[in-house]
Design a protein around this nucleic acid. Structure first.
Lengths: 210, 210
DNA sequence: GAGTGTGAAGGCATTCACAGCC
DNA sequence: GGCTGTGAATGCCTTCACACTC
């Protein structure tokens, strides 16, 4: 039963395929697509799309294309979209607040279970129907799947340690620091200043070379 | 004068090096580091670090390591941190608000020049000292370097078109859609649901394989 | 001796190109 | 005829390993 593990790049594309397929199926009420149409929409080479989709199983029909319905359920299965995932958000500054509101307003298979904060002025208030809990009293009785870290950089590692000690399996980190985590934790980070630096680096290069 | 263009991955690492070097130099008042120390801090292979840094020029001294000061100024130059970049933020929902506040509170070489929104209730109010302008009256007289798109998916392409028509050079997109842009525009995207999908995909795989 | 700089090797992701099937 | 599925080829990024310098 040991399948070969897929790279993060592949999962990233599945997420894009899923959105696109859903739109075609639900919003446009269509039945069929093909790798070229997906390629045009997502700007991903069509043979890469075929390769990705073939990893799920023989999804397509030669000469015909792909059934949107079976694509949808195939990708749902591989991304775990047929399950509900428990989220915990730590940190309710600007970014944490935005993330909480953004997630709360979107329907998805991600469920915000608990929200934690350190600032006593915020504790026990409510945001979008979620009580803000005291980080000092971390609730151990709950299975959290994914922890979202939105605290200042200086506190991010401490929060990560607490999450790891309470059995978190994956972390999405918005603080601009590299966290030290056990190998077994799945990890992604979102870093706005890093993104701006990449863009300004490329702009700088272009300016220097006309 | 045509140098070889660097990949986004390299710029991404420069951004990380820069942060790390700055911390050592300013917070820890140190003079010297080496590729092994950087490697331990950033979990990047030391030979990759040496390769990256050698692209800037002969930065290190064999047997000695790197001068933090010259690293700092070398990376500043390549990332354009010796310049100020003009930002325009479009969309002041939850995410746009958070981004604006986050950037406004951090000192950096990124300058928020204008903020735009469509909602008449928000126009002409102020957030963090920035007047919110009407998207219908886009100010043409300003040179914007980087446009930040934080509007709902359905409007993102329209906003992108306006930015492109007004000569934007780079776009950082927070809306979960693939934008169609001219090749010449530098582009990065931040997509929270995509990140969650990647994590839940990996968690799903692990669950299925113990 | 210690740590950089870099050709060469290795590994991984993407694209090519076409046989195979509807 | 049209589009999938996939070996083979390509290209890019990272790591190895060591000559070179301080």
């Amino acid at each position: 039963m040991k399948e070969k593990t897929l790279s993060e790049l592949v999962y990233e594309r599945y997420s894009l395929y899923y959105r696109c397929v859903n739109k075609m199926y639900h919003k446009e009420n269509r039945e069929i697509t093909d790798s070229n149409e997906l390629s045009r929409n997502l700007k991903i080479d069509s043979s890469l799309i075929r390769r990705d989709l073939s990893l799920i199983g023989k999804m397509g029909k030669r000469g015909m294309g792909y059934s949107l319905l079976s694509l949808k359920s195939g990708i749902e299965e591989i991304l775990g979209k047929d399950k509900t995932w428990n989220l915990v958000i730590v940190g309710l500054g600007n970014l944490g607040n935005a993330i909480l509101r953004y997630l709360a307003h979107s329907s998805s298979n991600y469920n915000i279970i608990k929200v934690y904060e350190k600032d006593p002025r915020k504790i026990n208030t409510k945001v979008e129907g979620h009580v803000i809990n005291d980080m000092e009293h971390f609730d151990t009785g709950i299975r959290y799947d994914i922890g979202i870290i939105a605290v200042p950089s200086t506190e991010a590692q401490g929060v990560a340690n607490i999450l790891v000690n309470h059995g978190i399996k994956a972390i999405l980190n918005f603080a601009p620091v590299k966290l030290k985590l056990p190998e077994s934790i799945f990890y992604r980070e979102v870093d706005i200043f890093k993104e701006l630096d990449i863009l300004s680096g490329m702009l700088t290069f272009e300016m220097n070379n006309h």
